[in-house]
Design a binder for these strands. Sequence first.
DNA 1: GCCAACGTTGGC
DNA 2: GCCAACGTTGGC
Length: 155
Amino acid sequence: MRYWLMKSEPDDVSIDDLAAMPKQTVAWYGVRNYQARNFMRDQMEVGDQAFFYHSSCAKPGIAGIVRISKAAYPDVTQFDPKSPYYDPKSTSEDPRWLNVEVKLERKTRLVSLTELRTHPELEQMRVLQKGNRLSITPVDPAEWDFVTRTLIGAP
DNA sequence: GCCAACGTTGGC
DNA sequence: GCCAACGTTGGC
């Protein structure tokens, strides 16, 4: 069982959008980076928990907690010429891109990026490292505990 | 296999 | 909109 941080642009899918989805579940489509894909393919398991992180927006930060509800399978948007995530080099026989599905566990207060940066306990967190661009990053259990217990608190 | 050019990410 | 950092592409 592992912990993760998954970035989403709230203009695309926000924590409130997820809360409004049927079954509060959404396919994590659109990942077009091999390292992030490999995390989903090789390491993510149903039941893993992840921070739902708002990126590329006015208030970047952790907005909720989700759980992996379905293991990786081919991302349908790669085959759709109308999708911004279309990949003409990918074929259904040998799909290049995958997605898992996640289910909302709970919405949290917005723990901003600037707040995360103030805590020495989180210095090593992948998402805080300079130049980090990965949309899916592993979260150390100690970091997970610190954020959930100390910063977010009980539901 | 190298590496320059180019495209993307994402905070500010 | 800017720009640093990084990934990908493609010529050689």
